[in-house]
Amino acid sequence: MTGWTYLIIAGLLEIGFASMIKLTENFTKIFPTILFILFAMASFYMLTKAIESIPIGTAYAVWTGIGAIGTVIVGIVFYNDPVSFLRLFFISMLIFSIVGLKLVS
């Protein structure tokens, strides 16, 4: 796999572990807590594989960006988080920034 493939998988796994935090109810629910740990470990592993071929600053920015965007979407769809024009605008800007980092790397 390429570094970018590892990085995308790492970002998707970050969405998984970030989304599990709410379900753990302060880590009192065992199954969501186990899922949180598994997603987090897998995400960090994939991130370490990605930085073998992608500059760490770029990889970290993209990893957190994918996680942030995905977690916002999960929050809106599953947790009734608020939706506003400005919120969607700034998430869009984050997406453009991630694409820009890919283009210059």
Rank of each mutant, 00 (worst) to 15 (best):
M1V: 12
G3H: 13
W4P: 03
T5P: 08
T5D: 09
Y6C: 13
Y6N: 07
I8M: 12
I8D: 04
I9R: 04
I9P: 06
A10D: 06
A10H: 08
L12T: 04
L12M: 14
L12G: 02
L13Y: 04
I15M: 12
G16I: 03
F17Y: 15
A18P: 00
L23I: 03
T24W: 01
E25I: 05
E25W: 03
E25F: 05
N26H: 12
F27T: 06
F27M: 07
K29E: 12
I30H: 08
I30Y: 11
P32Q: 01
T33V: 11
T33R: 05
I34C: 01
I34N: 03
L35Y: 07
F36H: 07
I37H: 01
I37P: 02
L38I: 15
L38N: 07
F39I: 01
A40V: 08
M41D: 03
A42F: 14
A42G: 15
A42H: 08
L47Y: 11
T48F: 03
K49W: 09
K49V: 07
E52C: 06
E52A: 14
E52T: 13
S53P: 08
I54P: 00
I56Y: 09
I56L: 09
I56A: 08
I56V: 14
G57Q: 09
A59C: 10
A61M: 11
V62L: 03
V62R: 05
T64M: 02
G65S: 11
G65L: 06
G65R: 06
G65H: 11
I66H: 00
I66P: 00
G67F: 00
G67D: 00
A68C: 05
I69R: 00
T71M: 02
V72M: 13
I73T: 08
V74E: 04
G75K: 12
V77C: 04
F78S: 06
Y79E: 13
Y79M: 12
N80R: 14
D81Y: 12
L86N: 15
L86R: 13
R87E: 13
L88R: 10
F89D: 06
F89Q: 05
F90D: 09
I91N: 08
S92R: 02
I98R: 09
V99H: 02
G100Q: 05
L101M: 15
K102T: 07
V104G: 09
V104R: 15
V104C: 08
S105F: 04
S105C: 12
